[in-house]
Design a binder for these strands. Structure first.
Lengths: 145, 145
DNA sequence: CACTTGTAGTTAACATGTGAATTACATCTT
DNA sequence: AAGATGTAATTCACATGTTAACTACAAGTG
């Protein structure tokens, strides 16, 4: 088979798709002076409760070096807190703070509205199918074989 | 509708999907000491012929500041060349060099093999459908409405 | 216990992403 | 021609992506 042209390749399509979607969220995040990655960290901690850095990095799809910097910045702004684990001097539990939760609460309505608008434009069934297909792709490629 | 959990949101799914796909290509690119973005620039120029920076940036999905730096690096390694446009002192035509073309030729077989393996694991029909759905999403979100 | 191996997290170095400001050049308008 | 406006590209500042190296601590092994 021919190598895919840049106009129809999976990596490019995924990149562009993500761009057009995130374009809708960026103004909201910019108004509150947080980055896309910081926002992911907040949401993961809000949903999952306190996590160690490695687990948080996995769930938020952020590499460890980036997470180190992000945590430092968010600790200074008091959006998250860290508590060392007694039994293991290497680990620390990261938790969202009241201020972090407040930010999530504050942004929730707008966030939902943006998602709904995307879903409406693209079609709810399409949207679900696309999510299924992406999850399937991630499955088929992440489990080595 | 509820805000999507981080486990089933379009931005996260697109990000993860891209990660697992690119993981297959990174070793190849690393062996030849070029970045993912430099590789995109080369392929776009190889396919489309000489382009101005703005058009190249659009086609390769790279922001202008990044492209400026990438072009500088690739000029030094003589993978691309730039020629100023006579009629308009602002513009310049960027073209792939023989060395750049040679690199593409050299990587083509491996690149095709990687794509084929992905397509085989995921399923050729699935793959086509996913590309269609992504293009449709890009369409529905990029044209403002 | 000393040594090796493994793991969590950080640091370093460099490339890119991102938004804002800036420069250089074109074009329009009067 | 002079000034206003627009456009292509760059520069700046800061955040993140990426790989490799490193530190700190833990657990296994002799």
């Amino acid at each position: 088979m021919l190598p895919p042209s840049t106009r129809r390749s999976l990596p490019m399509a995924l990149l562009r798709a993500r761009e057009v979607i995130m374009a809708h969220f960026r103004p909201m995040l910019a108004r509150h002076d947080i980055t896309e990655q910081q926002w992911r960290v907040l949401r993961v901690l809000a949903e999952a409760g306190p996590l160690e850095a490695t687990e948080l990095a996995n769930r938020a799809s952020i590499l460890p070096p980036s997470l180190t910097r992000i945590i430092k910045a968010m600790e200074e702004r008091e959006f998250i807190s860290r508590n060392k684990v007694k039994e293991d001097g290497r680990r620390a539990l990261l938790a969202i703070s009241p201020a972090g939760l407040a930010l999530i609460e504050e942004l929730s309505p707008e966030r939902t509205a943006i998602y709904d608008a995307i879903e409406k434009r693209y079609g709810a069934e399409q949207h679900e199918r696309l999510l299924d297909m992406l999850e399937s792709l991630i499955q088929s490629e992440s489990t080595e074989g």
